[in-house]
Design a protein around this nucleic acid. Sequence first.
DNA 1: AGAGTATCTGAACGAACGTCCAGGAAGTTC
DNA 2: GAACTTCCTGGACGTTCGTTCAGATACTCT
Lengths: 209, 209
Amino acid sequence: MTTMQRDGRKARGEKRRQEIIEATLRVIERDGVAGVTHRSVAREAGIPTASITYHFATLDDLLIATLISCARDMATEVYWMIDRARSREGLRRSSGSPYSGPSAADEVSALLAEALGPRRGRTMAEYELYLLAARRPSLRPAARRWLDVLTSMVKHDDEVAFRVFLAGIDGLLIQGLIDDEPPTAEELRPVVEYLLNPTERRRRARQEA
Amino acid sequence: MTTMQRDGRKARGEKRRQEIIEATLRVIERDGVAGVTHRSVAREAGIPTASITYHFATLDDLLIATLISCARDMATEVYWMIDRARSREGLRRSSGSPYSGPSAADEVSALLAEALGPRRGRTMAEYELYLLAARRPSLRPAARRWLDVLTSMVKHDDEVAFRVFLAGIDGLLIQGLIDDEPPTAEELRPVVEYLLNPTERRRRARQEA
DNA sequence: AGAGTATCTGAACGAACGTCCAGGAAGTTC
DNA sequence: GAACTTCCTGGACGTTCGTTCAGATACTCT
């Protein structure tokens, strides 16, 4: 009984798989899907080249596994984000004191600014997935995942306004990627407010009725 | 004086350049940027491989020239589209009879449906340009071209509503690319109407005042 | 006609690629 | 510790790639 690994062989293999996927994602963030080769990923992960072909039958399998993993992570983030926002709203309702924290528009625009600033590489990776999914139907469920999470979690009394909101988010992100410098949360807020407002207005109207 | 070509050598070279660019665009539409190689383009154009390196110093030059050409074509299309719409609006105003042709929302949604249906490949090519521009600043002016044309031609009294409209178009397009089947104009119209309405409402209000 | 120049191309080169494989290392079971 | 399974990897193979280049062809000009 040493201080060494406690995992079985299978667990070690799974860990390696994850390391390879993470290294692949870093390569995609840095150089795009075009930069993904057995050798570049192996260099990034600090492992031998043949180790990749052992864990992934083909390079395409690796790419697909990576993009699906990336999409799953993002969907999970969206899930928790909404969850946090919801519990906060619950607090706001139960307490009688006036709420003065960040508004929904504040939070969404901050999130977009983050996606276009520090997490730019990750955002680009997401849209590489979009484009790959456009050509390969098998990838589409993964690409739509964060949209599905939003759709199923947020109550949308106005179907059309909600679709506009989703499209607006994607449009702001992809247009932000080709700006010379990433837009700040302050610059984005008016647009986000505009995207959210109609929904909010109707919801408030419904609650007052 | 035969019935042969009348163009000088220079003109012939320029024509070849164009043919190569068009073949490259077809390859991108079919297989994406990843499918562009000297040999695949040469096969598509029906010319020898070395002919490409003669007209384009590097494969990257060819790719950039093709995507810029594609962006220029699209900007030109947007230009004429707005021009036609404007002259039609002029007619509508001058004639006293009630106008019953297609509304702006009708036309925009028909255009989007076309971009996601028959012209799907071209639309994908456009977003490949977007993604490439995200990584290469020198490509960004080309990628923004159609946005600039719209911005400079359409009078936008409400800056925010206009930015929402532009983002919405991009979002609808890129989300339409990952739908299992392309959305129809009828499905898109309510969303487009919603994107256009606020602007229209304010414009009408201004005209009535 | 002949010099000059732009256009064109078959063939080849070196580099990078995806993938394979024989064999070694590590862990598990008896 | 022996048998067995899984994990791992250095090295090699055949392919495709971007690019080069010497020489051929087509056109212009004087």
